[in-house]
Each structure stands twice: as C-alpha cells, then as structure tokens.
C-alpha cells in the first residue's frame, strides 16, 4: 500500500467511525468504498486493499463488490463528473441531443476524462428527476431542465473554474471527492443550502392551494 502514514491514519479514523454504526462490520463496505473514492477520485488498488484490510476481507472479495456498482470508478473521474440522463424520458425530451452535442463539444466520450482532469462524462440512467427533464448531474447534484446550450456552457464554466450552482443543491458545487465523502456517511454542513422544493415538485401543491383543495380533516 502506498498511502502515507498520515493519510492512512485519517482514513482509519473515518473508517472506524463508519464501521461503528453497523451491527456487522461488512455492512460498512459500500460506505468505505465511497470513502476511499473520496481520497483518490476513484477506487484505486490502494483503496481496495485498505477496505479489505480494515474489514478482514480478501482483496478479491472487495473487488468483486466494487466492480458490481457503477458509481465506483476504476480510473480517476474528473474533478467534475458530469452525467447526462439518457433513459427514455429524458432522452426523448432532449437528453440524446444534449449528449451528442456535449461529447462533440468536450471532445471526450462516455466514461472518459478530459486531459486536464477537470471533466469526465457518463451516460446515466433515470435519476428520479423526470419531471425536470432533460436532467444532468454534476458530482451527483441536480442540474435540471437542461438544453444543449446550457450543457455546453456548464462544462465550459467547470473547466474554466467559474462557479456554478446546482438547481437543487448547495450554492457552490463541491468536487467529486467531496461528494464521495458525503456518500461515505460523513456529510458536510450544506444541507440547508438550496430550495426545499422547486418548480415541478410544487406544481400539485400550487394547484391545490389555488383551488382551495385540501385533504379531508
């Protein structure tokens, strides 16, 4: 393993906290894979080894699990991992066109990263935001109601270091590594950022209020 003693110690402290939440230690494997991804930007060889050691598993067992799940990357993701939803509904509403124009514009394809390491692209499945179609995700934050133009602008902004904000998320987008740390179960303090709900999420409520409709008392 090539983690420095300081990195290893930090990871161990975090890992022990996570493991302590579960009745059986192996349940911490998925969170720990997110944790090592937050260190390296992908699940590296070191990361696999670390998880195996701390959980008392073989490395093969850990690799067998990590390769099953699409969110664990086998090579470094960009600082900004950009997903375009190409499941049917978003695809039809324009996701397919966004994908083709965006890949052309950025010059990399699916599961590839730009040479500057800034941006990686992925064709993602339905992200449970179909009422905001076409949907994109950056570091798994929502970028709703996209167009080919907004998508290209978004990626340009990311590459040029201009601040961008998700439509339903924190004021300032965090990095892929930071997002992975939250998924490991170690959240930052940005839960209060962004709207409670917006746009389509409120449509039914808005109509109910306008008509004076309520649930029975």
């Amino acid at each position: 393993m090539t983690y420095s003693p300081e990195v290893r110690e930090r990871l161990e402290t975090d890992a022990k906290e996570i493991i302590g939440r579960y009745p059986k230690t192996r349940s911490a494997l998925l969170p720990l894979l997110h944790l090592v991804q937050s260190e390296d930007g992908y699940v590296s060889d070191d990361g696999h080894e670390f998880c195996a050691e701390i959980l008392g598993l073989s490395k093969a067992e850990v690799v067998g699990v990590s390769t099953f799940y699409t969110m664990y990357k086998r090579k470094p993701a960009g600082e900004y991992h950009v997903g375009v939803c190409i499941n049917t509904l978003c695809a039809v509403m324009g996701g397919d066109q966004i994908w083709s124009e965006l890949t052309e514009h950025v010059g990399v394809g699916a599961d590839e990263t730009t040479a500057d390491g800034k941006v990686s692209l992925e064709r993602i499945e339905c992200n449970a935001a179909c009422d905001f179609a076409p949907v994109m995700m950056v570091n798994w934050e929502f970028f709703d109601n996209q167009t080919p133009e907004s998508a290209k602008q978004l990626v340009d902004d990311l590459r040029d270091g201009r601040a961008v904000s998700p439509t339903r998320g924190p004021k300032k987008l965090c990095s892929f590594k930071d997002a992975s740390r939250i998924l490991a179960g170690l959240p930052d303090d940005l839960a209060g950022d962004g709207p409670a709900a917006s746009g389509p999420s409120l449509e039914g409520l808005r109509i109910a209020k306008a008509n004076g409709w309520e649930a029975p008392k």
Binding site: R21, K24, P31
Partner: peptide, 28 residues
C-alpha cells in the same frame, strides 16, 4: 438507532432482497 446508508448505482438494489445483500456489503 437510525443509519443513513448510500448505495452505489445499481437499479437491482431496489429489489428488496438484493438491497439486503447490498446492505450487508455484498454485490446486490
């Protein structure tokens, strides 16, 4: 005790028994 546990990208983990395997730290 209540634990928030994040999955890692696999539709099949919505199937309840696959979910349990995943929550136990296995392939879903």
């Amino acid at each position: 005790e209540l634990v928030v546990h994040s999955g890692a990208g696999a539709y099949i983990c919505g199937e309840e028994t696959a979910l349990l395997d995943s929550l136990e730290g296995f392939r879903g």
